[in-house]
């Protein structure tokens, strides 16, 4: 088997692009699962809502793409906040019930979106310069994929800043480590969970704003991304750094496997590797908290 160095370099860059998509898809879920321990089955639908928000803003109000991204964050964050307040908050410490309830939410969101927007695909428009390709020394990559990589880095930096440099971050991490102690020092854990869920949903909304431009927008589009998100979060262990490392490893390995075999077999290999990895390290790469109380 002869693999040229250019093909290998291309594969690494493609791997980076896949990793950034995995990471962006998983970021909101990482925040929610890592903090509250909620396995949010509706995460893919939050991504879908982000994509539809951008579509609606463009189609009905003519808002430019770059402005749609923060609006998607706010809109989906607000929806997440409302769902947490009306449903999830009653189900903490009941993981199976939470799983079923969020699955129900996902079905409601899919059907609701289908009722409002129909089943036919929608399209998100991006500025012309994002649609082009860049070629450097025989390596080729779409500008929009580079944009997603940059966004992944910016979002990771933003979440790190919120978690480690703000009062809200201290509250989130305190509640994650020891809810009783956090409460004993004036932190309302219910409020922290609500805002964390909203933050996670908002990040999913941003993911949707990006993925909506990458693919067509459909009510069921979240189903594919939620698998990627869960793979990343479970492998990473629920921590931000864990998700970053996991998405990078999955993206690069998948791309390299695809180079030497084919993309279907590469995905199969990735799934097998993750299952074997979790067999020996069920807590994932970096556990979000030593002991959640």
């Amino acid at each position: 088997m002869d693999i040229s160095s250019i093909a290998f370099a291309n594969s690494l860059i493609l791997g980076l692009s896949i990793a950034s998509i995995f990471f962006v898809a998983a970021l909101g879920l990482t925040v929610i699962y890592g903090t509250a321990g909620v396995i949010n089955m509706a995460h893919g639908e939050f991504i879908m809502l982000g994509a539809y928000t951008v579509y609606a803003l463009q189609a009905f109000a003519g808002i430019p793409y770059f402005l749609c991204i923060p609006v998607a964050f706010v809109v989906v964050g607000a929806i997440g906040f409302a769902i947490e307040k009306s449903l999830i908050r009653y189900l903490y410490d009941r993981p199976l019930d939470t799983l079923l309830a969020t699955w129900g939410v996902s079905l409601v969101l899919i059907q609701g979106t289908r009722l409002i927007f129909g089943s036919e695909p929608k399209y998100v428009e991006i500025p012309q310069f994002l649609s082009s390709n860049i070629e450097i020394g025989g390596l080729s990559l779409g500008v929009f994929r580079i944009f997603i990589i940059v966004m992944a880095l910016l979002l990771a930096a933003g979440v790190w800043f919120v978690f480690y440099k703000t009062d809200f971050g201290i509250k989130i991490r305190a509640v994650t480590q020891n809810r009783e102690i956090a409460a004993s020092f004036g932190i309302n854990s219910g409020q922290v969970y609500s805002f964390t869920f909203a933050l996670g949903a908002g990040l999913a909304g941003v993911a949707g704003a990006l993925f909506g431009a990458l693919n067509i927008v459909l009510p069921t589009m979240g189903m594919g991304y939620v698998v990627e998100a869960f793979l990343t979060v479970v492998t990473g262990g629920g921590a931000l750094l864990g998700s970053a490392i996991a998405s990078l490893a999955i993206g690069e390995l998948q791309s390299i496997f695809a180079l030497v075999t084919n993309s279907t077999f590469a995905q199969f290999l990735i799934f097998v590797l993750i299952v074997v990895f979790l067999r020996f390290r069920p807590q994932g790469l970096i556990s979000a908290s030593g002991k959640r109380r």
Partner: peptide, 26 residues
Amino acid sequence: GYVPQGRQILGNFTVRENILLGTFAK
């Protein structure tokens, strides 16, 4: 101001962050 049995300081926090935690009730 609560000093619980077994201390229950937050091991992953810095000393500064542990103390700042107390100020949220202030």
